[in-house]
């Protein structure tokens, strides 16, 4: 009834619950450290301390910058391609029906096996990383957009015609608001997978970036570095996703 009205008390209890979960995760981490020792993982406290000290280092930020550049480029390309392809396939119903299962099958193949091919095509460096991010992110965005357009109630378009809206008005005031929440969900999923793709890309064929730092740490047994970078990457990914999730829920509530 008033499900959209989150009472302050409830919000407080949610914050408390989430704090408890973070604490539980920290306890697990400390337990893992106690069990496996410092040759595998550093303690939560030491990791956070090292992560903070990294924030003052120039080399750290240049790696962050490399990942950010690759990620933003990949996300922009994947979003644009995905939304356009999804809209096209959604409006041209026949093509959508033909390609949807093919796309869904492509989504489930282990894309990491395509990595050598990407390297052969793009060579080492930024473009390979970006391409790898794009092949991870573009399919979910396409599929969500396609589903959004396909799931559009036909009565909305008929209403638009009945109100004699111009194609522009229909697109702007009916079509876009109707499909936006679903497309946003697709972009949220695409965001995460693109990031994953870029990180994997950096682990291989790159001399820079967060993924490179992680793999480098693994190879050199620099546990301190690996754990700290993993922590930063995971926390960033989860926080960004939580923010997008909140925006996603707000968009859907507006309907």
């Amino acid at each position: 009834m008033s499900a959209t009205l989150v009472r302050p008390a409830r919000r407080r209890s949610l914050a408390l619950d989430q704090l408890l979960i973070v604490l539980a995760l920290l306890v697990c981490w400390q337990g893992a450290y106690a069990y496996a020792g410092s040759s595998a993982i550093t303690s939560p406290f030491a990791t956070v301390a090292y992560a903070i000290s990294m924030l003052e280092q120039g080399w750290f930020w240049s790696n962050v910058g490399a990942t950010a550049l690759a990620f933003v480029s990949s996300l922009a390309i994947a979003s644009l391609l995905g939304v356009l392809a999804g809209l096209g396939l959604g409006l041209w119903r026949f093509a959508g029906d033909v390609t949807e299962p093919v796309l869904a099958a492509l989504y489930t193949i282990p894309k990491v096996t395509l990595y050598p091919l990407i390297l052969l095509l793009f060579g080492l460096g930024l473009s390979a990383k970006v391409a790898f991010g794009v092949i991870h992110g573009v399919i979910p965005v396409t599929l969500f957009t396609l589903a959004a357009v396909k799931g559009l109630p036909p009565v909305l378009l008929r209403s638009a015609r009945a109100m004699r809206l111009s194609p522009r008005q229909t697109l702007l005031h009916v079509l876009a608001p109707a499909v936006l929440p679903e497309i946003f969900t697709g972009l949220r999923v695409g965001f995460s997978l693109t990031l994953l793709g870029v990180l994997i890309g950096e682990m291989f064929a790159s001399q820079k970036g967060m993924g490179f730092l992680i793999l480098n740490g693994i190879n050199l047994h620099n546990v301190k570095l690996t754990t700290a970078v993993v922590l930063i990457v995971v926390v960033t990914a989860i926080l960004a996703n939580a923010g997008l999730l909140a925006a996603d829920k707000r968009l859907r509530r507006q309907r």
Partner: peptide
Amino acid sequence: RRALDPLLASYYAVPFFVFYPVLVAF
């Protein structure tokens, strides 16, 4: 469930294989 929601929604953004060294130690 409500408290875990953000974690569940972003699990696929976590490259799990970075935990490989820890798991080998285990």
